[in-house]
Design a protein around this nucleic acid. Structure first.
Lengths: 128, 128
DNA sequence: CAGCATCCCTCTCGATACTG
DNA sequence: CAGTATCGAGAGGGATGCTG
């Protein structure tokens, strides 16, 4: 089945609304303050907690922890605990997280291409 | 110039941090509760205020107004006032808004493709 | 019709301190 | 090293009422 969340009996309006909620759901995941940052730091390799913390500065410990939980919950990153002293925990992107990274990079590309134009528009708008 | 926001003298770390802030900036625009919904409603044609309101239900008047202001400020939609009685205002996507729509559709596609998997991951995670 | 003004509440996020 | 616990400020957003 192509779109398992649609159900028989849905009107087309229902389906449009479901699609909207779906996009919003994903946007809430990557639209928070730190998720995309963390995903990008994991783009090429596995990283440890404090390594991510440094690379994602000025993220706080609490927010990195919270963000990683959320990403893990959605199956976007894996959390691997090595039972050593001192403790060591590795984080890495799952295949799903990697596929999201691609989309995020498109978004980043659009952002770069349009950043100066957007800033100009804002300045012009605020001048009125 | 390909990337006008980078400045001479930036370290590569500076540039990475700028790129991150840039993506976050865009995500704050489309990551709010209604922007993407409104953009999608304008995908094929010009629409009037209350038309958008009905199509984007259950958006409130206040939030539609706020959202449209934000999109207009960033040069993503145009606002055209027709001086008639009763008053009539048309909203439409700009070329920039249209280019964003393409990216948003990719995101929506990813969301659809991964929705069921994400929901499964969440259920499994929460079961622990 | 197309809004703006006001009130209020929730939820995110940051700061700080503490732990196995 | 890799977190958790608690507190508080602030922004986002909903409900309602009013206006040109």
């Amino acid at each position: 089945m192509a779109h398992p969340i649609t159900r028989a009996g849905d009107t087309s309006a229902d389906r449009r609304e479901q699609a909207r909620d779906l996009i919003r759901d994903v946007l809430e995941r990557i639209g928070d303050k730190w998720s995309v940052v963390v995903i990008c730091q994991l783009s090429d390799t596995t990283r440890r907690f404090n390594e991510l913390r440094r690379m994602s500065a000025p993220i706080t410990q609490r927010m990195l922890s919270t963000t990683l939980r959320g990403l893990e919950r959605d199956g976007l990153v894996t959390r691997t605990v090595h039972d050593t002293t001192p403790p060591r925990v590795d984080y890495a992107l799952t295949p799903r997280g990697l596929s999201l990274l691609k989309v995020v990079r498109d978004l980043a590309g659009w952002a770069e291409d349009n950043a100066s134009g957007i800033l100009e528009s804002r300045t012009a708008f605020d001048a009125r």
